[in-house]
Computed example of a mutant assay.
Amino acid sequence: MTTHAVRLEAAGASVTVLSAERAVTDWAARYFGQWWKAAQVAPDSVCAGPVVVAEVSPGAYADAALEVTRAPHTSAVYAKAQMLLARDEAAGVIRGVSPEEALAYRSEPAAGSLTVIGCDTEPVATATARLAREVMRGTLLRSGWTVLHASAVVHEGRVILTFGQKGAGKTTTALALAARKGLALLANDRVFVRPNDSGGVAVLPWPSAAALGLGLLDGLGWFEVVQERLEAGESLHPTQDGQVTEALRAGRREPLWEGGKELKTQVFPDQFPNWFGVPLATGGVAGALVFPRIERDATPAVENGDGRGLTDSDFMSGKTEDRYPDVFELARVDDGGGVAEARHGVLGLLARLPHHAVVLGHDIDGNADFLAKVTGWA
């Protein structure tokens, strides 16, 4: 049986994805490739370092699920689904099964090995990518990186970081500069940060799909692009709600809401350069901080007052990371956003950089012109 392998690398950390299913390793290469260095490698070259093995086999899944349910086990919620977990302390093995998703797992933390088993290729590929990212996260956090809740764009190595809770305008700010001013997109929702040897803050991307509301998609001029791609048989990320796909195909641009939550387009990382002509950046050094607020009819302007500074709440830690608890001991740190010492060191350095509290409207061109001037790169 042929085995395929893709190695992911960032800032000295690495993880290799192995599978007999080429679609699984292709998914990982596509998802991480332009943000984390992803490369096809010879399977027999994988002799050290963290490895995530993916297997698509209904029979193997059934055997693995039975092994968990027959053993003493506990229950947790992982990725919004029930996960049953069985630990073999003597062997150093953690087994898990998610019946709702028909996925089973075997983790050997000391050996740096994780196996994902499922019945269908796409769920296995999605879970494998998610857990490969968790392995990388753990390696980076243990080497002093921490995770900020921010969007980011890069101009000539200088990173503009944008902060705020959901709806504040992080994505609008980043994509206005990327789409209209040619800045490279580094991250849509979070980034890795760590002090560098020059007294600055190095920034790395956190690869993920990007959630774009239909209104923002229209404002950026990308709605028709997505329509054409869908009509040509291409697809967006599978986590996208079917109602959004239906609206896109029908040309309905008004925002969609369900239970008080906006349903958004879910864009693969590689679709930014391939569909929209937005380049992706692989890193940079923090140069400015932006704290936006969106008002529909506002003229872009600097907010009055001292503006907001960073706090511990701007890091992805505690409850913000509870969707993916470290049940397989991949991160092996007390806090999924990074240790307190690392966060405080970054906070001190970022506090020295220019801070810009701004109000933005719905005019993407106006926002981009204003932001380029305020952040000092134009």
Rank of each mutant, 00 (worst) to 15 (best):
G182A: 05
G305V: 11
A187K: 09
T69D: 11
L204R: 10
A104E: 01
T311M: 09
L263T: 01
T171I: 10
L103D: 00
R308Q: 14
T2K: 10
T375H: 02
G242F: 01
R137Y: 07
P109E: 02
V327L: 11
K170P: 09
G348K: 07
G318E: 05
D365M: 10
C47G: 08
H4R: 00
K80G: 05
S113Q: 13
A23Q: 09
P273C: 13
A38M: 12
G144A: 10
A71I: 13
L280E: 00
D335T: 09
L347T: 07
E100N: 11
A76M: 06
G277L: 04
T265V: 12
G318H: 14
V53P: 01
W257N: 08
L204P: 06
L349R: 04
P195M: 06
L353I: 01
L85N: 08
E231C: 06
A42D: 13
L280A: 01
A184F: 02
R87I: 13
Y78W: 09
F223W: 10
K170S: 13
S98M: 04
R137G: 13
L85P: 07
R30P: 09
V147Y: 14
A81W: 14
E21P: 00
R343W: 12
R229W: 09
P279I: 02
L360H: 14
E329T: 13
M83Q: 15
D326F: 00
E156I: 03
W145C: 05
L263Y: 13
L289K: 01
E231G: 02
A247K: 02
T146L: 04
L248S: 00
V225Y: 00
F272Q: 04
V154S: 04
A111P: 08
A168H: 09
Q227W: 00
L289D: 02
A372S: 10
W275A: 01
T171W: 15
S14A: 09
S57G: 02
A129S: 08
D241G: 04
T69E: 15
L353N: 10
F32P: 02
L185W: 09
V333A: 01
E329I: 11
V225M: 03
R332L: 15
R308Y: 15
A79R: 09
T128E: 04
D44I: 07
T121W: 03
L66I: 08
L18M: 06
E134M: 06
Q165E: 12
A39E: 14
A174N: 14
G157M: 04
A288G: 05
A209K: 09
D326G: 00
A111V: 07
R106Q: 15
G318Q: 11
P195W: 06
N367Q: 07
L131I: 14
G307A: 07
W257M: 12
D189R: 13
Q243T: 05
V333L: 12
A210G: 10
V15G: 05
D120H: 10
G337D: 10
V278I: 15
H155S: 12
R133S: 15
N188M: 04
L280N: 07
G96C: 05
T128R: 00
Y324F: 13
T311H: 05
V290L: 06
A28C: 15
K80W: 08
K264R: 11
V77F: 04
R352I: 07
G305F: 14
A247F: 02
G213Y: 08
Y105F: 15
T2H: 11
V153Y: 01
L8P: 02
T126D: 08
A129N: 02
G59P: 11
H4G: 03
W206N: 11
